[in-house]
Design a protein around this nucleic acid. Sequence first.
DNA 1: TATATTTAATACCGATTGGTAAATAAATAA
DNA 2: TTATTTATTTACCAATCGGTATTAAATATA
Lengths: 212, 212
Amino acid sequence: MCEETNTEVAAQQTSKPRGRPLAFNQDDALESALQVFWLRGYEGASMAELVDALGINKPSIYAAFGNKEALFRKALAKYLAGPVAFIESVMHERTARKVAEKFLTGAAEFLTDHKHPMGCMIVQAALTCGKGSELIQQELIAYRKNLESSFEHRFELAKSQGDLPPDVQSADLAKYLATLHQGMSVQATSGASRDELLAIVKLALKNWPTNE
Amino acid sequence: MCEETNTEVAAQQTSKPRGRPLAFNQDDALESALQVFWLRGYEGASMAELVDALGINKPSIYAAFGNKEALFRKALAKYLAGPVAFIESVMHERTARKVAEKFLTGAAEFLTDHKHPMGCMIVQAALTCGKGSELIQQELIAYRKNLESSFEHRFELAKSQGDLPPDVQSADLAKYLATLHQGMSVQATSGASRDELLAIVKLALKNWPTNE
DNA sequence: TATATTTAATACCGATTGGTAAATAAATAA
DNA sequence: TTATTTATTTACCAATCGGTATTAAATATA
């Protein structure tokens, strides 16, 4: 461990990489992979279709990203960092009610955005799967639970700040929100329009608990 | 078409079948297939796993039910006729509110019943899929839409009967209900408990539109 | 017993699955 | 120029996919 690794060489700033350069943009390729996994799900996306979509041949994909599972995880990371990143800002809304409102309306717009496949990748990519993909399935479940508990914590904060009644069960409310989102994702994949989802959101928010 | 078919022979009541008798109960086999498709989804269920579950070898399955697609449709029919049949009775509840209440609470119980895989087969069996299964995917979408429009019609009736305000959009309310159900299905598959789903139902019904 | 009919069981099919070995090509460093 | 390093390409792998041809077994009828 005392030897110098060649990645952290001392003074060699912006040294050109040694061998043959990559013939493709890694980020573009990952974006293409993301679109395929988003549309098809983890198992539904075959390596053959991924090869087509990325425009790279298979060994180069494996060299750049690892196997299918690794490629999926990297595409998923891009999904989380990109489209889904707005959730972070949602949590900073002033009140619990505004958090819910912005989350659901934002979701309605995102889930029906024709710039990408309909629905939420984390909800759909591996809801059911064959015996070989249960790890991916569990990981997506964990991501969903994670979002849910973020809401729960945010609602606990809201209670302490007084914009949510103290008798409200934060966990229930968080799960209600997550459930609506997941249902809306199914709806979007099934062809529901943006306006239809927004109408659902309006109904869902009607009974939001208040202190008044 | 004037010839007598040998299935509707005249006086031959309860004639014994000619050849070697079936070594398995067709209905039991279909029930096993249903469980596998329910758990794994259409594509996730491999013929190999189905063969294991049914305890019949492959050619016998094909002889009795047709190919994988046909087997799935027959299992689905059993699903609709069995577990899902309670929806029919739900529609006969006296008011729209009672329809929604019975549907959602019934769903919460059904989706988390440990006697079978969690979640709703019609929601999960082919949400995303590979290129070869898009027909099944569309058929399941149609079943969901069908349920949704049943609710819509029921709510139109409720408006005419006066237990739902006339300004309510039946289509929106129906979609709200369907969305909740679909989200609850995802939740159940992800490990949510019956009580957790019932808490969601309670929240969802809080703001049900009334005439008072 | 002989024959027709139907099912069960074994063994197989071509196609597709995810994944790679080996050879070639393109760049930099010495 | 030569050696080294990395990427691309072609061709391939074993395993699994859904699906079947063939043969053996079980029953009814003649």
